[in-house]
Amino acid sequence: MSIDVADIHYAYGSAPALRGIDLSIESGELLALLGPSGCGKTTLLRIVAGLEFPQRGRVAFNGRDVTDVSARQRHVGFVFQHYALFNHLSVFENVAFGLRVRRWRLRPKRDELQRKVRDLLDLVQLGDFAHRLPAQLSGGQRQRVALARALAVEPEILLLDEPFGALDARVRGDLRRWLRGLHDRIHVTSVFVTHDQEEAFELADRIAVMNQGRIEQLADPQTLYTQPASPFVCRFLGEVNELPVALHARWSGHDEADVTAFVRPHDLDFVPAAAGGARIESVRDLGPTVRIEARHPALSAPLVAIHERGRFGGSGLAAGQAVAIEARRWVLFRGEQAVTEA
């Protein structure tokens, strides 16, 4: 089931949340909506679900206009950040809920219902927990129940609102991988919302980076990282050094003052040089990597380079040393516009 979203506008009272969203999601794709708090990603998800209705714009599933269709009729599965399990029902009953509330004729018979629910519980590896109550489960288990519950009605679209946000880091990682595996098996068109760049990168086929109610860039992770469309995207996807082009002869073709080179800490090197212009301020051992900060008189923020332990050991840098800057990869921006190399 493909999803098409066209020119969506939404405001909470007088505060605009979405300012014209256009998005096409392919059938079977796993797409992430990534952005900071307040960028409108959850609102957009809810609009796709039919839990909110836009002031302007269109939503279509497989080409069929569903803008005015209620959530109940849209057959989407929705997974909430805080699980939203029915606490007075057992795990089994939670998963069976969608099947039980169907109209009389569409309701599966007892045996069939039992089988379906059991299969789903096995799918999420909670087969032994069928008769427990949500209060007796851990966070990760509850979220898996929520997923099973959403899948029980065989939706053609699965929507997840920061599904791992309420879990601790270790569980989050495990569930992430598990979800990816699940998606590879079931191939349901899925959209999930997150503010965690790493999560988006690990899970999604494509990512829509959002900011202040607009989509800044829609692309696969690789493209986002190497060819960010705007400084916002660049900054959001990780730490980055912003250097005026005058700093290095390599960029001298772009001499205008308002062009900035964005260099990732992993792509920045410090080379010992007496007249390098920068001085090392701190060297911190982070375990697998080493973080080196240096100060340049022309810059207010420190320069940050992150290297793998092995590499650092070789260059022998220490605090106080004078260094020159070398960059292996960079992206150029004039204001909000990307600048291509001459």
């Binding site: 839990l51 109940r72 909430f80 939203a84 399990l85 809920f97 509330v101 519950r149 029980a152």
Partner: peptide
């Protein structure tokens, strides 16, 4: 209201 929203998406009237 999340539980209610969940119920709606699951097809409850």
């Amino acid at each position: 209201g999340d539980e209610e929203r969940a119920a709606i998406t699951l097809g409850a009237s």
